[in-house]
């Protein structure tokens, strides 16, 4: 359903544009050593396009698209008038929430995959491709790199689960999908701003955006999955808390739209 919708494909296409823009820009003008992480490495190895694109998408583009999908989950059905028909079908309120959350999670995975794959393809098309030098200095072949890129995609998709759960909860509060989308995106921004303020260091580990850019461990040798585990724990905690809030709200809500 989510993937039968033109809007979803438009958002994935927009995300795919990020690595394309990065690669084309670097192709036109060598960036030297400035710019976002991995940018300078692209000219020598096109596979780095994926990493650069992922890094620049995480703060804004990814949360934006995830906010649209998660904010739309329940509020979108309510505003179309389909929510009452789903409930009368009867879809079951818990089942409906679970399906919607699963849909949002699938979108997170699709979004991260889109950036990684387009990045690898565009990079391979425009630049030389070869064994990749990791942050630890070791070199891995294409196979090893593919494994790490796969892990990176999982890491980023996982990172966005907490935000999705928050969006799902907000979506049960309103019948105006745009409101829920905007609120979710604003929270994503707010969490990152809070994460920048050293005075608020106490709460930093608890922000859902805490580990968003912490995937460097996946690019070291030997492979360290510690940060992936920590991030997973945090995101699952958000999923549990906001999933329960959404459940509590949605199962007692009068559907009047």
């Amino acid at each position: 359903m989510l993937f039968g919708r033109r809007r979803t494909w438009a958002m994935l296409a927009a995300l795919a544009l990020v690595p394309v823009l990065v690669a084309v820009a670097v192709r036109i003008e060598d960036p030297g050593r400035d710019g976002p992480p991995f940018l300078g490495s692209i000219t020598s190895n096109g596979l780095f396009v994926s990493l650069t694109a992922m890094t620049v998408s995480i703060p804004l583009f990814l949360p934006l698209t995830v906010g649209v999908v998660a904010g739309d989950t329940i509020a979108g059905e309510a505003s179309l008038g389909t929510l009452r028909y789903l409930l009368v079908a009867p879809a079951g309120r818990l089942r409906l929430l679970a399906v919607k959350m699963a849909g949002a999670a699938a979108f997170c995975l699709a979004a991260a995959t889109t950036i990684a794959l387009t990045g690898a393809l565009v990079g391979a098309a425009l630049f030389p491709v070869g064994p990749v030098t990791l942050l630890s200095g070791d070199t891995v072949g294409l196979g090893g790199y593919a494994v790490r890129l796969g892990l990176l995609v999982l890491y980023v998709a996982l990172s966005l689960l907490g935000l999705s759960a928050v969006g799902l909860f907000i979506s049960t509060l309103t019948t105006v999908p745009v409101g829920a989308m905007a609120a979710t995106v604003v929270l994503a921004g707010a969490a990152q701003v809070l994460g920048q303020l050293p005075q608020l260091e106490v709460i930093h580990p608890w922000l859902f955006s805490a580990h968003w850019l912490g995937f460097a461990d996946l690019l070291r040798s030997p492979l360290d999955l510690g940060s992936l585990g920590e991030n997973a724990l945090l995101q699952l905690a958000y999923l549990a808390v906001f999933g329960s809030l959404a459940y509590g709200r949605f199962t007692t809500k009068d559907v009047l739209s």
């Binding site: 359903m1 039968g4 919708r5 033109r6 179309l80 008038g81 389909t82 929510l83 009452r84 028909y85 789903l86 009368v88 079908a89 009867p90 879809a91 079951g92 089942r95 409906l96």
Partner: peptide, 24 residues
């Protein structure tokens, strides 16, 4: 209930199929 509610971006047939699938 209070007027029809459908997904405007789906066909009439697909709307019915989806609503039917919503009932387990």
């Amino acid at each position: 209930v209070e007027g029809p509610g459908f997904y405007p971006f789906l066909s009439g047939r697909d709307n019915l199929r989806r609503l039917d699938a919503a009932d387990p």
